[in-house]
């Protein structure tokens, strides 16, 4: 056995390398986790296929059933990864001292949070690609993408939605116990899936309830995506505004209240 030389030679890796390594590592951890995959991949896919094929809920707006459902399930995919998945994973990382231990490593905190965002974006890209392929196979004909403005609006909605859900997810993970986060994040996921305009149109709710539900981030995201992709309408400023508001609130609260241990 050769003897190792332990003589000190300390130093942080270049920050770019740390960021890449941390993003890749977190993504690998996520993709290995069966429950996370169920949440982020299996559920949106199954819902898309099932509700497109079977006439269970009456959909809204022009086009085929899949034209209503695909934008809603893209919104659900964003929520499942940025909010539910991230909250649960981060909650357990906090509980098991992972965040604490990383706090003594050369990785700066902002870089850890950037890596988490990178991991979320990579996962979302995979989800969007998968859902798009399946929806197209089911006959989806997305509108509004012919112009750069439409594509840009969709991108802005996805990014703001990710920011809003990340802020709320991290707020939960950084303040509640890991088990409480697990339960609450799953409960919120189911409630928002049902009452956030993902597969059930908000028009099915009484109008007073509907105007309250419209303020939910999931409702703003699915409505915004639909107004471009289903109806080809212009920029959904009010949805963008709601998402922006949640993003600012959520991220500010997370930054203020997040506890690392």
């Amino acid at each position: 056995m050769t003897t190792t030389d332990y003589s000190p030679k300390p130093g942080a890796a270049p920050v770019g390398r740390m960021l890449l390594a941390q993003t890749a590592f977190e993504t690998r951890m996520l993709l290995r986790n069966g429950e996370q995959l169920l949440l982020t991949v299996v559920i949106p896919t199954v819902l898309l296929v099932l509700f497109s094929a079977v006439d269970i809920v009456a959909v809204d707006g022009p086009g085929k059933r899949v034209d209503f459902l695909a934008p809603g399930l893209l919104a659900l995919a964003v929520m499942s990864t940025a909010f539910t998945g991230q909250a649960i994973a981060t909650g357990f990382e906090r509980r098991y001292g992972v965040l604490k231990r990383l706090g003594a490593s050369p990785l700066p905190r902002w870089a850890l949070l950037t890596a988490k965002t990178g991991c979320v974006l990579v996962t979302e890209a995979l989800q969007v690609a998968l859902l798009t392929v399946i929806a197209l196979a089911l006959g989806w004909s997305p509108q509004g993408l012919a112009t750069p403005l439409g594509a840009l609006t969709v991108a802005a909605l996805l990014v703001l939605g990710t920011a809003a859900f990340s802020g709320l997810g991290l707020l939960m993970a950084g303040t509640l116990k890991a088990e409480a986060t697990l339960a609450a994040a799953n409960l919120v996921f189911i409630l928002l899936l049902l009452a956030g305009g993902v597969i059930v149109p908000l028009s099915k709710f009484p109008s007073a309830v509907q105007s309250a539900l419209e303020l939910l981030p999931i409702a703003a995201l699915s409505d915004g995506l639909r107004s471009v992709l289903q109806t080809g309408a212009g920029v959904p400023w009010s949805d963008l505004g709601i998402l922006g508001g949640w993003a600012v609130l959520g991220l500010a609260a997370a930054a203020r209240f997040f506890r690392w241990e």
């Binding site: 270049p14 941390q22 590592f25 098991y96 992972v98 231990r101 050369p106």
Partner: peptide, 21 residues
């Protein structure tokens, strides 16, 4: 603690090494 619950020993160590120069 201090280690991702789903990480394998060697990959965790390799990752930690990558954070250093």
């Amino acid at each position: 603690g201090g280690v991702y619950a789903g990480a394998r020993a060697v990959e965790m160590l390799r990752h930690t090494a990558k954070l250093h120069a």
